[in-house]
């Protein structure tokens, strides 16, 4: 009986059966999950302000093709607010501006620019309409300037909207103003019919 068991040898198998259990151990170390390096948005105990993402040192100049005092980056030519866009006015630019405007400005200024955005309404912020004569006649660089530097109660959006997109928004604001204030004589006869009345 003993020798029969030896030839079958189940006990020897049993002796090594624990080996697969070692796999359980292998799953337990996490040093590759949290590697000793900084990733975006991580806190840091090395830097004084506790941030791993470093803000640029003062007086940093953006590394673009544009010189730092160009119209593209400042909205001003020779100290005066720019009258022209620093890029070509195209349908794509306006469409780009539309998506940016709806994301960043519409919460307060409203989709139509009348100052009746959802936040303005709910939060009780007084937001001026973009449809008044002063803003209709102002240089387009003024919008760029407002977005870049903010104005009174409105904060700057420069850290969220890159300069090219700021120009797109500025151009779109113009389109908005035009859409709400167009001389009916400039429209086709067909369109004038749609206006009704007359």
């Amino acid at each position: 009986m003993e020798s029969a068991a030896r030839t079958l040898n189940p006990s020897r198998l049993a002796r090594v059966a624990w080996i697969p259990l070692c796999l359980l151990l292998a799953a337990c170390h996490i040093d590759m999950y949290d590697q000793p390096r900084y990733t975006a948005n991580q806190p840091s105990d090395f830097f004084e302000d506790g941030r791993a993402m470093r803000p640029p040192v003062p007086n940093t100049v953006p590394m673009t093709d544009e010189p730092p005092d160009s119209v593209m980056l400042t909205g001003r030519a020779n100290g005066e607010l720019a009258v022209e866009l620093p890029m070509e006015l195209t349908a794509e630019l306006l469409e780009r501006g539309q998506t940016r405007y709806n994301a960043y400005c519409a919460p307060c200024h409203g989709l139509a620019g009348d100052g009746n955005g959802v936040i303005a309404y709910r939060g009780g912020i007084q937001v001026p309409s973009l449809h008044n004569d002063r803003l209709r006649t102002v240089q387009v660089g003024y919008f760029f300037d407002v977005i870049t530097n903010g104005i009174n109660r409105m904060y700057s959006y420069a850290n969220r909207i890159p300069p090219e997109d700021r120009w797109a928004v500025a151009a779109y604001v113009r389109a908005l103003q035009l859409s709400q204030n167009v001389d009916a004589n400039d429209l086709t006869a067909e369109e004038r019919q749609q206006l009704g009345g007359q």
Partner: peptide
């Protein structure tokens, strides 16, 4: 409820690897 776009707060999501947290 307030209809704010994701990009208002997670502004880099279209441009970078990380969507980022709002400042």
């Amino acid at each position: 409820q307030l209809k704010i776009d994701c990009r208002y707060c997670h502004a880099t999501v279209e441009r970078a690897a990380h969507a980022g947290f709002p400042s």
